[in-house]
C-alpha cells in the first residue's frame, strides 16, 4: 500500500512537471501552429537562472525566501528570453510554420550549447530548500515533500491559466485564436500581441518547471530540458494539441503510467509504455483525448 501511495504521489509530481512544460507548448501550438522545440531550452535557462541567482544575487539564496527570490529570477529570465525569441525570431516569420519550427530547432541546439559552454556539461548540484527536503507521512508512506511542492505549484498554475483564459480579454483572444486565428484578425484584433504573450507565459512555466525539476532531481544539467521536452510533446499530443484541461489530464496519465511501469516492470519500461500510450491514443482517437469533447 505504502508503495502504491509513494508511486502515485511521485507520478503526480512528475505529471506536474510535464504539465508545466506542456501547457505552454499546447498554448503556443494551439494559437500559433508552432511546435516550439526551444521550449526545453527555456526550461534549462530557468533552472540555471535559479541556480545562478541562488549563488550570486544578494538576498537570494538556497533556502527560505532567498530561494523564492532565486526562482523568481530564473522565471523572469526564462520569460524574458521567450518573449525576445518570439519578437525577434518568430514574429518576422509570421504564418510560415515550417520555418518557425526550424528556427526553434536551431535555437534549441544553440541555447543549450551556450549553457553548456558557460557552465559545462556536467550536472550541477541544485539547492534544495529545507521545505522540500523532509518527508510527510501519507497513508503509511513517507513521501518526500518536493512531490507536494510540484503538485501544488502545478495546480495553482492550472487554476491561474484557466482563470486567465476565462476572465480576461487576452484570454478571450487566445481562446478565439486557438479556434480560428484568421477570424480574430478580421475582427480588428492584432493577434500577434497574443502570440508574444503565450510565448512569454510558456517561457515562464517552462522556467518554473526547470527550477522545480532541479529540486526534484537534486541537480541540473544542460540537456535536462530536451529530455523532458520529448515527454512534454507526448503529453501535448495525447491531450489534444491545444487544450489546457486535456494537457492536464494527459500529464497525469503519462506521469502515473511512467512511474508504475518503471517500478513494477523494469526501469525504462515506463518510458516505453508512455510511447505505447501515445501510439494507442493516436490510432484510436487521432485528435487526442479531447477530440470528442469538442
Amino acid at each position: 500500500m505504502s508503495t502504491v501511495v509513494l508511486l502515485t504521489v511521485t507520478g503526480l509530481g512528475l505529471a506536474a512537471l510535464y504539465f508545466l512544460v506542456a501547457s505552454g507548448l499546447s498554448l503556443i501550438f494551439g494559437l500559433m501552429g508552432v511546435l516550439n522545440f526551444a521550449h526545453g531550452a527555456f526550461l534549462t535557462i530557468g533552472a540555471y537562472g535559479t541556480w545562478w541567482a541562488a549563488e550570486n544575487i544578494p538576498g537570494a539564496g538556497a533556502t527560505g525566501w532567498g530561494f523564492v527570490y532565486a526562482v523568481a529570477f530564473g522565471v523572469a529570465v526564462g520569460t524574458l528570453v521567450a518573449a525576445v525569441v518570439e519578437l525577434t525570431l518568430i514574429r518576422p516569420l509570421y504564418e510560415r510554420h515550417i520555418e518557425q519550427v526550424l528556427v526553434t530547432v536551431g535555437l534549441s541546439l544553440a541555447l543549450v550549447a551556450l549553457v553548456r559552454a558557460v557552465w559545462g556539461a556536467d550536472p550541477r548540484p541544485f539547492p534544495r530548500p529545507e521545505l522540500a527536503r523532509g518527508t510527510t507521512s501519507l497513508l503509511g508512506a513517507n513521501v518526500p515533500n518536493d512531490r507536494f511542492l510540484l503538485i501544488a505549484t502545478a495546480i495553482v498554475v492550472l487554476v491561474a491559466v484557466l482563470a486567465f483564459l476565462r476572465f480576461t480579454r487576452f484570454g478571450l483572444v487566445i481562446r478565439a485564436g486557438v479556434e480560428n486565428r484568421t477570424m480574430v484578425t478580421a475582427l480588428g484584433i492584432d493577434v500577434r500581441r497574443a502570440f508574444t504573450l503565450v510565448f512569454a507565459i510558456g517561457g515562464a512555466f517552462a522556467a518554473l518547471a526547470g527550477a522545480l525539476g532541479g529540486i526534484y532531481l537534486g541537480s541540473i544539467s544542460p540537456g535536462q530540458g530536451t529530455s523532458l521536452l520529448i515527454f512534454a510533446f507526448i503529453v501535448v499530443v495525447i491531450g489534444g494539441m491545444s487544450s489546457i484541461t486535456g494537457t492536464a489530464v494527459a500529464a497525469v496519465l503519462v506521469g502515473l503510467v511512467q512511474q508504475f511501469a518503471n517500478y513494477y516492470a523494469a526501469s525504462g519500461v515506463g518510458d516505453l509504455s508512455v510511447v505505447l500510450l501515445l501510439a494507442v491514443v493516436l490510432l484510436t482517437r487521432p485528435g487526442g483525448l479531447t477530440a470528442r469533447l469538442a
Binding site: R175, E179, N180, M183
Partner: peptide, 10 residues
Amino acid sequence: EVFGGLTVAE
C-alpha cells in the same frame, strides 16, 4: 465563422 467554443456574449 463564429467562435463555436465561445458563448454568444463572448
